[in-house]
Amino acid sequence: MTALEARAVSKRYRRVWALRDCNLAIPAGRVTALVGPNGAGKTTLLHLAAGLRRATAGSIRVLDGLVPGSADALPGVGFVAQDATLYRRMSVAGMLHMAQNLNPVWDGAYAVRRIGELGIPLNARVGGLSGGHQAQLALAIALAKRPRLLLLDEPLARLDPLARHEFLGVLMAAVAADGISVIFSSHVLAELERICDYLVLLSRSHVQLAGQIDAVLAGHQVLTGPPDQVPNLPATLAPIRIAQAGAQVHLLVRVNGRRQPIPSGFTAQPTALEELVLAYLGEPSATALPGPELAAPTGSTR
């Protein structure tokens, strides 16, 4: 079961490549963090998965082989754009009425209950709601169509800490209750570790790293030791990032899934998601090295 599968996907806008040769196989039921610097191709990837744009080359499939944007795929995929696109002049009730008529499956009771819990009046005008309430309204509408895959583009950007917590709580409750797959892009690294269990790191239009977060973290270590010993480290330890001071050096290394003996003179510490993501983002050339679970096309695993 895959939520999203990309094979050699590229997307070009005129002369600029937004995505180059991306391979991904995100399993269903995961909460995936899509991370990368601005302009890395996150929004483009989400737009391709939602069927809002077509790939220039390669193939992208959602929910076990469906073509994004096709009549089969549309009811199963929910998408909330970066600015939570809503009709600002409409009332909340009007917005719900329209969503009901645009979607073949619609759980109106859920939407009304959620909006009631948030204390949003049904006759309020959408444009008059706070940024947090607009984001919550967009999420409620996306969830009321009972999608199997939910795509969220920077959903947390406009939310204050309390709204962020409530937004993520509702999202996680939907994951727990219905087992939906979620892919969301975010710059809020601190929140990702407790929300997400799958990581896709985009950098300069390429997939730099993809895999289950537990496995990715277990596949890396921070080694601390004397700088003069660095040349003697075994070649199997591929350092992603080297941070050096006078008498001490920190190396983020990939241990390739196996527990390796710690080189003499060094101590090993586990790494955290934020540290790992920052290290990879700081070293875009680490792309060349195969990640612990660098996603490969997995047509044969089904």
Binding site: E166, L168, G169, M172, A176, R194, I195, C196
Partner: peptide, 10 residues
Amino acid sequence: VELLAINPNT
């Protein structure tokens, strides 16, 4: 998970 906003797996 709704209360704590964490992944259900946790």
